[in-house]
Amino acid sequence: MKMSRRDFLKATSAGIACFGLAQLGFDLEPLRAYGARLKISGAKEVVSVCPFCSVSCHVVAHVKDGRLVNVEGDPDYPINEGALCAKGAAILSLTNNPHRVTKPLYRAPFGDTWEEKDWEWVLDRIARRVKDLRDRDFLPTNGRGQRVNRLESLFSLGTSHMDNEECALVHQAMRMLGVVHMDHQARI
């Protein structure tokens, strides 16, 4: 039977659940007060990809009762072999963070405060601004009369959280508008 390292760990934790720790030869008596129960025992394991840089380390997310309880490196993935850097190791806090922005925020021109808005309002607003700007600034030709069909007053800034396909979509959408200034951040 072929068994990955993770299957082995699963099997041993199942064994622990059935027979109790003592039978495996661990004397945890003095440690009872500290709580010997593993917080990921019985959790569902979901393999995912770290969202930060282009190394794309694989992680194992432990989900218990619909909640993320732990994230660590996937030992079966040959690139990171279970390891993670400080950013990848913090994925749990990235997800369960009270400071996480979960609603669109809007700051009006010259405003100094953020207002919560719904997605519909924000998307309409972005579409309106992009359309108006393109109508105003679109350049069919350059100074020498050559056809360029470009829009120089809009800039697209990507994020390392976007995957290849998302980047392709954004790129195509920007080219369609004539945007020539594009940058992306997945080169950490």
Partner: peptide, 22 residues
């Protein structure tokens, strides 16, 4: 540090050791 005694008892490496990439 508690040597991740809960993890070690379950046959796992301590969290710090598991994460170390080098």
């Amino acid at each position: 540090c508690d040597m991740c005694i809960d993890r070690v008892a379950a046959g796992m490496a301590p969290a710090c050791v598991k994460a170390c990439p080098t």
